[in-house]
Design a binder for these strands. Structure first.
Lengths: 215, 215, 215, 215
DNA sequence: TATGAATGAGGGTTCATTCAT
DNA sequence: CATGAATGAACCCTCATTCAT
């Protein structure tokens, strides 16, 4: 009968199992629609134990956000090959991003879809993570700009919007890639590079599109 | 003081007020967290009246999605200046998009954040709208490609991913622009154009970024 | 095209239409499950008009009970051929009873099924009607006993139980006949006569079944 | 005073108490008019506990019907003395029936009055029980016919109508006996036997009442 | 005469959370 | 370490009933 329930396991392990169950349920149903009953059942423990370890639904969801944030950022950092040209770094980072989100759809759903709808505290948490990602990307861009001896007057504000757009496009593409299983992480990354690289290059070199000048 | 409660107004008008209240509450709290009590109170009516006119929470939310979808698409279509080069059209369309979403943050939140987490029926509705937007953008791209005598072998799949990324970036930037009030719609549009136009151009002309070749 | 709603008809007629609609809805759904909305809609009038004429749901239901009680009793009285032997009278009365209930199932459902479940006031009303029916039957039995020069010690209590049982059996059979459309009123009446007449005869003649004596 | 509220009892026991309360409230008020609040209060528990154990009002009512059906049938079967003549068996069965219904008026009301007005699913359940009762009675009649070497051409249809009428009369008398407390179960049974036995005998011997022939 | 507009009150159901063992 | 038993608070929805015209 397979599935023998292991009793009396150490706290750390139990906690991990609960978190995994929580991420799955939150990812599938969203914060409000997920119930503590569902989570406890999926984790194979009684509800009071969930409360004993994780305190409340709110804290549990926060913990999920933190866990998934850290995992995502770690995946991107580790996947980003630290040597070579900046474009190569961006490419490897993006590929790692898409690989991670595709392999962990519930975690990604928690971050991208649900954390933003559960109210202030959660938004703050996921925003912090996003900020970190944007900062990381910004670093790559700045480095690339230095390499290219690009426009030294590249404004901080412009870089911010730019990184924002890049991350946003990546997030959107991640959703797309998760939905349509035939799209691989590498394809998504390539699409985004195709879409973005030339624009970045122009921008770094001070060429800008403007309503007056046109293409 | 101010806001004198008007009693006994015709149904159509009451319905409009209720929808406005609903969009506001749904936008702020999300589908599950919003309560019909809150909506009724904000609309200045009793709950039964909301049910009498809008039937159920689900139908009400659907109606909100439809209303906001139509408003957004109308704003983009009307804002897109139909003459001139494709890039100009894209620019005006984007500006209209950012202007509309910035001026109507709750409606945009309903579409972008909440409709995607409320279950199948809502996803279907907002997907239809997104599809329409993507199709519109695709049309502009194709037209631009024709103007540029671009690569005739531009694959359908690539165009799809591209439009997806563009719309995604726009959506993400809309969130950014809404959060940070100092960012105007025009700035957002310009950022996106800067970011995207050259990439689009390269793609249309058959130049692609690839991991082997680099920038 | 068909069904032109007649406006401004005299009160009496409107009231009749409302009552007809009410009997139909109450008969199909029961007192609690029936809604004033349903009744008003079926009657083709607005709800306030129903209240204007019939005052309240409770009064409306009471009126329905009275109306159907009177109709049923009138049908039985009129159907009972006043001449001839008592058994013939009973037979014609029963036939009239089954004919009426079969032809007016909603009215019968109101009396037999729903009036008994709507609380004290209604029970009282339908009990009064039943009492009248039982008294009528009792009259026939007494007359038959006189004809037969039967046991003069026939106890009042026994006659009461007897008439009660006869009416109860008829009511039960009416439900059965209404359910199974292939059973005609005459068949039902014959079944009941077969079932009952000999027993009545024995009783009137002082022969009784008793646990000690057996058949 | 008295009735000290016992907290924390095992599930099976609590469930029994809830069912008892439910039968009482449903029996007194009917399905629609009964509220889960009333039931919970009478059971001395909070409403959520009722839902936790019994799932929904509908399931709770169904469970009540099943419980009372089984109890009634068991009472009749156990009360029917399996030896002796068929009439004796019928007599003891009827006595058991009246004893049980008189001692459990709410349960009987649930079965006889309320289950028939709560919509299809309940009707089906109580119909099944009635069918079983009718089959049981039919068995006795057939056995009696065999004993009496009676008319072998006794039609199935006639036996069905007959058993139906007998059960209907018993049901009706049960209501009467419940209303008037001075009527004992034995009296009710005797009345019914007096009323019915001779008629049954005639029928089995092929003598029938007919409108042409008279008594 | 007749109605469109509106609501107070209550019912079924769910859920995060806690207590006692 | 772990759980079966239990609940306060809210939420969606409906309905009999009335008001203003």
């Amino acid at each position: 009968m397979g599935e023998v329930r292991a009793k009396r396991m150490p706290r750390a392990e139990r906690e991990r199992e609960m978190m995994a169950a929580a991420v799955r349920v939150f990812g599938e149903r969203g914060y409000r629609a997920a119930s503590m009953d569902d989570i406890a059942e999926l984790a194979g423990v009684s509800k009071p134990l969930v409360y004993l370890y994780l305190n409340s639904k709110e804290e549990l969801f926060s913990a999920c956000i933190r866990r998934e944030s850290e995992a995502l950022i770690a995946a991107v950092r580790e996947g980003t090959i630290g040597t070579g040209d900046a474009d190569r770094q961006l490419w490897t980072g993006l590929t790692a991003f898409f690989t991670h989100t595709a392999g962990n759809p519930d975690g990604w759903a928690v971050l991208h879809r649900h954390a933003r709808t559960g109210g202030e505290p959660f938004v703050a948490e996921v925003t912090a993570m996003r900020e970190e990602l944007v900062a990381f990307v910004t670093g790559l861009i700045v480095e690339a700009a230095r390499e290219a001896h690009g426009d030294p007057e590249l404004q901080e504000r412009e870089v911010a919007g730019l990184a924002q757009a890049l991350v946003g496009a990546a997030e959107s593409l991640a959703g797309w890639a998760n939905t349509d299983e035939s799209v691989t992480a590498k394809e998504a990354a390539a699409t985004l590079m195709n879409f973005a690289w030339a624009g970045l290059g122009n921008l770094m070199e001070g060429r800008r599109w403007s309503p007056e000048a046109g293409a």
